[in-house]
Write a protein that binds this DNA or RNA. Structure first.
Length: 211
DNA sequence: GGCCAGGCCGGTG
DNA sequence: CACCGGCATGGC
């Protein structure tokens, strides 16, 4: 199992993914996103809202925030947490997520993995998503899909162990990390589901999973 | 109608 | 350290 080989297979199968989606649009092959602070902030909001939640539901919340011109730190600071919770209810866990957004708005330290993890509601995946997709840092994002796909390929490990494997096996390039994580998500959605569709899977030749 | 979604927190053993 | 329940809503 070679991580570069897996990447090539997934890229050949699905092509560029255009992450992170801004305004519900995927700009495939364009790694200049975010282009400004507003896009950067939208990514951070999305990273919080998508915690254990499908992106479809997140889009609904982001649409509502956008219509109310609330993709804006200063404006979000002015509204009540309970009011914010109502606006984002479609993406689930809305009371917690409203608190998480408010906690993030208070954050005023130098942005590092360590300081982001101090924010209530920011675990490793959210912190790493912000570093990679909002700030273009070459930090690999591990998620439940990554763990599922690679455990079936024969690689088990904790968050940190898996991340370390990617960091040591791949060129530290944020564009590569951006695309790779997005391809993992797409592959997990299309084939490597809880109940996997192995017949049509592009990785079946190197996969250990047998149903 | 049940299962699952681009997690994290707080508590327990 | 590993595991668990709670958190909420909508798509399929």
């Amino acid at each position: 199992m070679n991580l570069n080989e897996v990447y090539q297979i997934l890229y050949d199968e699905y092509g560029p993914q255009g992450w992170w989606p801004i305004n519900n649009k995927y700009s495939k092959g364009d790694y200049s996103i975010p282009r400004n602070e507003k896009e950067e902030f939208e990514i951070i909001l999305g990273a919080i809202l998508t915690q254990s939640t499908s992106w479809k539901n997140v889009e609904k919340s982001l649409d509502i925030l956008r219509k109310n011109k609330l993709i804006d730190r200063n404006k979000l600071e002015k509204i009540e947490e309970t009011e914010l919770a109502k606006l984002i209810k479609h993406s689930g866990y809305n009371n917690q997520k409203a608190k998480k957004i408010k906690e993030y708005l208070k954050f005023n330290k130098e942005i590092t993995r360590e300081t982001l993890l101090e924010i209530w509601g920011f675990g490793p995946e959210t912190a790493d998503s912000v570093l990679l997709y909002a700030y273009k840092k070459p930090i690999f994002v591990v998620d439940a899909y990554t763990k599922r796909i690679f455990s079936r390929l024969g690689v088990e490990g904790s968050y940190e162990e898996l991340q370390n494997l990617f960091h040591t096996s791949l060129t530290k390039d944020y564009k590569l990390f951006n695309e790779y994580h997005a391809l993992i998500v797409e592959h997990a959605k299309q084939h490597c589901k809880t109940q996997p569709l192995c017949e049509s899977c592009c990785l079946k030749k190197i996969c250990l999973f047998k149903s």
